[in-house]
Design a protein around this nucleic acid. Sequence first.
DNA 1: GCAACTTTGGCAACCGGTTGACAAGCGGTT
DNA 2: AACCGCTTGTCAACCGGTTGCCAAAGTTGC
Lengths: 354, 354
Amino acid sequence: MSEPSPHESDVPEPHSSIKRLRVDKANPTIYDIARVAGVNPSTVSRALSKPGRVSAKTLKIIEDAAAELNYQVNPIARALPTGRTNTFGLIVADITNPTFFDIIRGAQTTGTLRDYTLVLAESAESAVTELTTARRMMTTVDGLILASPRMDDHDIRALAQDKPVVVINREVEGVSCVIPDVAKGISEAVRSLAGNGHKRIVFVPGPPQSWMSARRWDAVQSACEWSRVEAVRLESAKPTVDGGRRVARAVLASGATAVMTYNDLLAIGLLQELQAGGISVPDEISIVGFDDIFGADFTTPPLTTVRSPLGECGAAAATRLLDLLTDAGSPIEIMQVETELVLRGSSGKVLAKS
Amino acid sequence: MSEPSPHESDVPEPHSSIKRLRVDKANPTIYDIARVAGVNPSTVSRALSKPGRVSAKTLKIIEDAAAELNYQVNPIARALPTGRTNTFGLIVADITNPTFFDIIRGAQTTGTLRDYTLVLAESAESAVTELTTARRMMTTVDGLILASPRMDDHDIRALAQDKPVVVINREVEGVSCVIPDVAKGISEAVRSLAGNGHKRIVFVPGPPQSWMSARRWDAVQSACEWSRVEAVRLESAKPTVDGGRRVARAVLASGATAVMTYNDLLAIGLLQELQAGGISVPDEISIVGFDDIFGADFTTPPLTTVRSPLGECGAAAATRLLDLLTDAGSPIEIMQVETELVLRGSSGKVLAKS
DNA sequence: GCAACTTTGGCAACCGGTTGACAAGCGGTT
DNA sequence: AACCGCTTGTCAACCGGTTGCCAAAGTTGC
């Protein structure tokens, strides 16, 4: 513990209840301000966090002292009695997956506007790691966003019992969620392909346990049924560029003239592999990806994709979470964000095979 | 304040010094463990954080009680007396810039391995915002990484006086840094272009106040001098895809047959614009980018680039920072990571113009 | 002028954990 | 029996801020 320097102890304290003396210390505290301003530390605390609770005269004296000392509140000390840190957590399934970059960006930007700091972690696609990480985060952050979570619904609900939780890309009963309305974008895509003369569309799904992959396949089927187009589903593929390359032969073997993939990475890998095999895109086969990730328009031809507004998802989730923190009585909400077809060069009219 | 329930106050406390009673509370504390184990809270604290300081028998009793109560340490309460939160901050200049994705990934992965949590923020390319954000972060995190910082050197040194700071992509005297050795990769690139017959190389620089942009131009000049190739420098361009598009005419007007850009985004935008103008890459002009960002190999032809190992930068910076936290006496270090030429299809032999 | 009411600054307990100082207990030695 | 050295559990102050309660001071109405 630091002790008062000899010369300071010679100066009688205006209020003997101030015990926490600070000498030769980098960061001033409200006790230092109290001494300079000649008031009680509790008055300083009120002046800084509840200015209306002290008189204007006292407030001015305290603010001047704080400025003079270059005081900065210690968020840790404040968090202990209030239970609030002005931080929120975000756990993503796989930090190498670029779909999460926009989600992180949207959440971070929204948090900053609301004076909250983002704490980031990943689960490495493991439900166990995810739950452990979430429990640890919950001890410090004010609320938590789970992006494409892998843990069970009941684990998510248990977390939400403690502090506010918002889930992205998955619907969990009893918890606020932000979910892209995949039906809209997929319907637009299937309609576009049908209009271009395609009779058979093959779908390349993502991870077997992915909730979103199942939703996307459901939507493809539904849209194809409506447009009287045949829908074929391949085996699940790794949601990576390499996964897309590996699925090229199966895509061709399906006899389809259009392919829709679980995500853009699969689409890009597929595009590259087909082109390497001399197959012309979109002349011989149309490709439609999903999400509209960063780099999706770098390809030649640029990738047609169903755009998930990932940045909006992140921003909406952060907004909802911070609203829940402000008004704890807010009801559970399922927020849907619209997907839309982004028509680029990788899809077109079906042409006769050469 | 919570009060003891009536039935609990009827039961005499084994140790009357325990005042903090907890009833109907979600999260148990060391006071609860103390009561169950029949020891002093300070003994519980020592058992959990310095197990060798209590007897094996007492340790077992306390651990059993902690497990029974499903106790989880409150990092905020621990941080107040120790000053440690097991978190580290990372501020990036622009969260929309994909070069930071790998840096974030590298730092986050390393932090997780060392049981540290990443706190992320961005400065939106503003030196003022950056310094304000850094100062705020410094009140809670144990250390800070600044990626491509925009603030002054002396502000960075002032921050480092308080807690450990590591800088990426810039050399700051008196502060540990992680810097890509741009000379190596750029030399390889210039050598490759010279070997392909190019006699004039034009460089498209990035932001005027970017330290790294100046270093890259220095390296291009030096390498060109060695290879007896003419080096030409254009005006600074916005380091975005659009910035690359806008600089296409100036690139062509320079008469160079090879262009090196400040970063991949510039190169990709330039590539797209030249191709849209009917100029064949690399037949009519070779393009070399920098960084090898995500998506750099999506283009057709795939982009030749000088690869900055950004993930390694992030990991090295995090490793250095956490080492500094573990051993405060560690000296300042300048860590260089090697760049290397990644030869793809966007650069090749100079051909006669048609 | 006084009673009733409001304002406002101080007191001290508290948030949950850490840790220096102290003392009791134990075994060994003289 | 007294002393020494060591172990180990307790006491209580502390980290920096918050806040319920209280009392003194100020204001208002009669």
